[in-house]
Simulated assay, not measured.
Amino acid sequence: MGEDAKRGRIYIPLEDLAKFNYTEQDFFKGVVDERWRALMRFQIDRARQFYTTSDQGITYLTSDARWPVWAASMLYGQILEVIERNDYDVFSQRAYVPQWKKLRTLPVAWMRSQVL
């Protein structure tokens, strides 16, 4: 999100910003305060609900499509964990999953694709 803010882009629904009294100007300035943290907790909770719901449908995909979808779901979920560990500061710290952790996640995703 920090990279998007620097490019003048915002992908968070404006009604969500308003709900937490956080402005577009705050976003573009990279303000990290309790309003932002509450907004991010809300967004992360929503994302996790979407992941939980969509993960249930992975079994309906063709067998060759399941592994990459499981991998994406798991890795994006890990990015949410990094955002939380960074105290929701997405402006000065890029949230990413290190290569070693990605490599550790892929076999687990493969196993899920075979049994779930």
Rank of each mutant, 00 (worst) to 15 (best):
E24Q: 06
Q25T: 14
Q25E: 15
D26N: 15
D26F: 09
D26G: 12
D26M: 12
D26R: 09
F27W: 07
F27R: 06
F27K: 03
F28V: 13
V31L: 15
D33I: 14
D33Y: 13
E34H: 12
R35Q: 14
W36H: 06
W36G: 07
W36T: 08
R37I: 14
A38C: 05
A38V: 04
A38I: 02
L39H: 09
M40F: 10
Q43H: 09
I44G: 08
I44Q: 09
R46W: 08
R46V: 01
A47P: 01
A47F: 11
A47E: 10
A47V: 02
R48A: 07
Y51N: 02
Y51T: 02
T52G: 04
T53D: 03
T53H: 02
S54N: 04
S54Y: 02
D55R: 05
Q56G: 07
Q56C: 01
G57A: 00
G57L: 00
L61Y: 01
L61E: 01
L61G: 00
T62D: 12
T62K: 10
D64Q: 07
D64M: 05
A65P: 00
R66A: 04
R66M: 08
P68N: 02
P68W: 01
V69M: 10
V69H: 02
W70Q: 04
W70L: 01
A72M: 12
M74G: 06
M74Q: 11
M74P: 06
L75G: 05
L75R: 01
Y76E: 15
G77W: 09
I79Y: 00
I79V: 15
L80V: 02
L80Q: 04
E81L: 09
E81F: 00
V82T: 14
V82Q: 14
I83R: 06
N86G: 00
Y88V: 14
Y88G: 10
Y88Q: 11
Y88N: 07
Y88E: 11
D89F: 04
D89Y: 03
D89L: 08
V90K: 00
V90N: 02
F91A: 04
F91M: 10
S92E: 11
Q93M: 09
R94E: 10
R94V: 13
Y96N: 11
Y96P: 06
V97G: 04
P98W: 00
P98C: 02
P98G: 08
P98V: 05
Q99E: 14
Q99G: 05
W100P: 00
W100S: 01
W100C: 00
L103N: 12
R104D: 10
R104Y: 12
R104G: 09
R104A: 15
T105D: 03
T105K: 02
L106E: 11
P107T: 11
P107W: 09
P107I: 10
P107A: 08
P107K: 10
V108C: 00
A109M: 09
A109Y: 04
W110D: 10
W110N: 12
M111A: 14
M111H: 02
